[in-house]
Amino acid sequence: MFKNIWQILILIIITSFLALLQFSFISSLPSPFCQINLLLIVLIFTLFFLDFRTALISALIAGFWLDLMSFSFFGLYLIVFFICLFFAEWILKNLLTNRSFYSLLAIMTGITFFYNFLVATLFYIFSAEKLVFFLWQKSFWLTTAYQCLWSLLSAVILFNLAVLVSKRIKPFFLDKKSLV
């Protein structure tokens, strides 16, 4: 029990630190570095390499921090992270069932796009001023493209690191011998 509490405490500290980093440090960087969606990358990474429970707890902490510090309606990031994680988990269980490099790339890119779409939709629905619909805005597509690129890059780096550490990961390429 104490081990569990200790693990959760470490998770809270790490996720909180990442949330502060995302909110303050990354937002101050020049473009395209400010488009790194560090929290989403870490959440998908946690879901992919660890388990749904850990990812869900991380999402709760990260969403709470972002909702606390930002000026959007409270609960926006909590809801978005939950939906993205739930969707990612469904994809991993039903579509991309092997934990391979390609599945990580696909899930990182897909969920990043889905996250941006969800956030933009909720902002558009709940914003007081009705600006131009986000799908017609260049900034939305540019931000999404940059975030997807960063997600792909981080997927490559994280997968390489994880392969060194864990044997649970499938190889990069399909084994030709198994196809014959």
Binding site: S24, S27, S28, S72, A120, F123, F134, Q137, F140, T143
Partner: peptide, 14 residues
């Protein structure tokens, strides 16, 4: 002190 800058998604390009 400035502590954050809104993301482009949040600002809706404004």
């Amino acid at each position: 002190e400035v502590i954050s800058r809104e993301s482009l998604i949040e600002s809706s390009g404004a």
